[in-house]
Amino acid sequence: MSTLGTPAFRTWEASLTDHCTSVRTARRQLRDLLTSWGWSGERVDDLVLIASELVTNAVVHACRGSGEVRLYLQEFDGDCRFEVWDPRHDLPLHDRHPRRFSECGRGIDLVRQLAFDFGVVTRKGAGKRVWVRMLLDPSATPPPPLAS
């Protein structure tokens, strides 16, 4: 909520390369941004962890030399939607059952557990957007979905 009592609508976007250092860059930028918007504590940590997983997936599995990963964030009065765009149409793997000591295969399940809502939007010729929705106050009654 803004200081005048009216809801605040804020947006942010960034374009990163498909290099592994982009994951660290995304985490840092997102943490700084959310903190400047008044988010704090576990909610920031959760969204930064989610961003780390989604950007890693885009860089490692989806881009493969395409050169670009795009990030989008919009927040309206404590309801946040974060998206990662990549140029491929293949969907994130769901319902994987990694072995006990496997080093991979748990990321999307982690995202699903931490986010209020989660999904993927594909568009012909335009890649895909993997999105998550987080609420600043997880006990609050959720508002209707933010616009795509």
Rank of each mutant, 00 (worst) to 15 (best):
S2K: 11
T3P: 02
T3Y: 04
T3G: 14
T3H: 07
T3M: 07
T3R: 06
L4V: 06
T6Q: 11
P7G: 13
A8K: 02
R10D: 14
W12D: 01
E13Y: 12
E13H: 15
E13P: 00
A14W: 12
L16C: 05
L16T: 07
T17V: 08
D18A: 01
C20R: 12
T21I: 07
S22Y: 01
V23L: 05
R24K: 09
R27W: 00
R28W: 06
R28T: 10
Q29M: 12
R31G: 06
L33V: 06
S36T: 15
S36H: 07
S36N: 09
G38W: 06
G38M: 03
W39R: 03
S40A: 13
S40Q: 13
R43E: 12
D45Q: 14
D45N: 14
V48P: 05
A51T: 15
E53S: 07
L54E: 03
V55I: 01
T56W: 15
S66W: 08
S66Y: 09
S66T: 13
G67Y: 01
E68A: 06
E68V: 10
E68Y: 01
E68M: 04
E68K: 05
V69L: 03
R70Q: 13
R70E: 10
Y72D: 12
Y72A: 10
L73H: 04
Q74E: 15
Q74C: 09
E75M: 09
D77C: 10
E83L: 15
E83Y: 04
V84C: 14
V84G: 11
V84E: 14
W85D: 11
D86L: 05
P87A: 09
R88V: 09
D90Y: 01
D90K: 03
L91N: 00
L91K: 04
P92G: 05
H94L: 15
H97R: 13
R99H: 07
R99Q: 10
E103H: 14
C104E: 11
C104M: 07
C104R: 12
C104Y: 08
C104K: 08
R106E: 13
G107V: 01
I108T: 07
D109R: 12
D109Q: 15
D109K: 08
L110V: 15
V111L: 08
V111T: 05
R112M: 06
L114D: 10
F116A: 09
F116N: 02
D117P: 04
G119T: 02
T122W: 00
R123I: 05
R123Y: 00
K124M: 04
K124F: 01
R129G: 00
V130R: 00
W131V: 11
R133D: 12
M134D: 05
M134A: 04
L135Y: 03
L135R: 02
L136M: 10
P138G: 00
A140M: 04
P142M: 11
P143I: 12
P144W: 02
L146C: 03
A147V: 13
S148H: 11
